[in-house]
């Protein structure tokens, strides 16, 4: 399946891009993050991140569908 990833803050720096489309066999957000963390050297453990799919917060066990927009959100620091 193809997933559309967006990256922000230090994850964007680590990935070297603001977003990418990834072909993957990962079925859920947890498996997809493990794959991308290995590829890009993401330092965050999943417990430190939140997950959003198609513009809404969701959980790590969320089943992914083809063409989903998936975002792994590092701890926020607005304000």
């Amino acid at each position: 399946m193809n997933y559309r990833l967006l990256y922000f803050a230090s994850l964007r720096d680590a990935a070297g891009c603001a977003g990418e489309t990834v072909a993957s066999n990962a079925q859920d957000a947890r498996a997809l993050y493990a794959e991308l963390a290995a590829r890009h050297g993401f330092a965050f453990a999943p417990e430190r991140l939140r997950v959003a799919v198609n513009g809404a917060f969701t959980n790590w066990d969320r089943r992914l569908d083809d063409d989903d927009e998936v975002v792994f959100l590092p701890p926020v620091s607005g304000g």
Partner: peptide, 12 residues
């Protein structure tokens, strides 16, 4: 402001 700082996906 407290909730925005804690929850909204913005980074500095």
């Amino acid at each position: 402001i407290d909730e925005v700082k804690a929850r909204v996906p913005i980074w500095k």
